[in-house]
Design a protein around this nucleic acid. Structure first.
Lengths: 202, 202
DNA sequence: GGTCTAATTCTAGCGCCGCTAGATTTTATG
DNA sequence: CATAAAATCTAGCGGCGCTAGAATTAGACC
């Protein structure tokens, strides 16, 4: 391996080290604890070295978010192909979304809660974010009127539940039942079936 | 007026001055710009004086949020009595919620987005927050199964739309049409009517 | 009106933050 | 081995939330 290749590999490794450090520190102590001084300590370099990889702290968080979009997209896409054609696709995709948010709470915050320089709904939107959204659209099933629009409303409803529960503003207990209500309201059957069965919060 | 009364009045006035300064600075430049130094400058006292009214910056924001709960509750309650019994109550209350969030964006952030020490869904919850939530419950109409639970899901859906639009993650255009979709899904008629009319995003 | 005490307010500073200029060290090249 | 380039570090800037103790002001009492 050439010297240039070795240097590039080491640089890429350090980039990953920074992202891993940011994510782990955020998971352990929250994003407020993730500072450039502490990241530098964790990777055993001085602060300015971070700035040779990222334009600033916001870009570190954006990189963590982008990894999150990739993981979320993979997760949702897996659910759409797992039960293709079956009525449970919407439920599974929605459940996967909520489960992702629950199990990757700080990554989810970086993705969809904290201020970001990532562009949404534009040409500069990360492909993985588009893919994740496309999986939501696909989960609604074929033959839906205005599927992209409806997927935006569904996304809002899922996101709202997730963030209100995760910030302690509504009880986390009852999450599955609330999800069930949402899924039924967005299911293509919602428009032709009779009165719903009652739901009991946990 | 006694000296003690005058002192108490001046103290209360300064408390209101601090809240007004915080809100106005947040509205002008965002919560990141609201610092204890700048608030002190705006009220023409030194920083430590803020701490004679509030335990810390978080409590200033909580006080702004509490005022917001009061305004929101008043707004939503006004909508529930305005068209009592008519089918448009849910639509009006939801529209009032979204309009409040749009026109009080930074207060809304303090209320429902930023980290807070305010207790939700507990004995310590501010009465105005309970009242605002009660107005959502009432808007769903009588004879709904699990109305509190359903109101939580509705709140999540409204909140999600609001924050995704206001943070630029979904387009702000189309807000009214998305609200229409949500209202229809949560309307008590949603369970007995036929296929919905198609919706066109703006 | 003067003095003393209590209340109020201010100054100065702590430890930390994101970020950068220029110094220093290390590495690669000839 | 010397030199230049690259990489990394030190030191510092301006700012943050917050507080201890100094200084000032106000009120009570004689």
């Amino acid at each position: 391996m050439s010297i240039a290749e070795r240097k590039e590999r080491q640089r890429a490794e350090r980039y990953e080290l920074i992202l891993a450090a940011a994510r782990e520190l955020a998971e352990a102590e929250g994003w407020d604890a993730v500072t450039t001084r502490r990241l530098a300590d964790l990777i055993n370099y001085s602060q300015p070295v971070l700035y040779s990889h990222f334009k600033g702290k916001a870009e570190i968080m954006a990189a963590v978010a982008t990894r999150g979009f990739e993981e979320l997209a993979a997760r949702l896409e897996a659910e759409t192909v797992k039960a293709a054609g079956a009525g449970g696709v919407l439920r599974n995709v929605c459940a996967a979304y909520v489960d992702f948010a629950r199990s990757h709470a700080v990554v989810y915050e970086a993705m969809f809660v904290l201020p970001t320089n990532i562009k949404f709904a534009s040409d500069d939107t990360p492909p993985a974010l588009r893919a994740a959204f496309a999986a939501l659209v696909a989960a609604l099933g074929p033959d839906r009127r205005e599927p992209v629009f409806l997927a935006e409303v569904l996304w809002g409803a899922l996101h709202g539940l997730v963030v209100l529960m995760q910030s302690g503003r509504i009880p986390a207990s009852g999450a599955e039942a609330r999800l069930e209500v949402l899924v039924e309201k967005f299911s293509d059957k919602a428009q032709v079936s009779g009165p719903l069965e009652p739901h009991k919060p946990a």
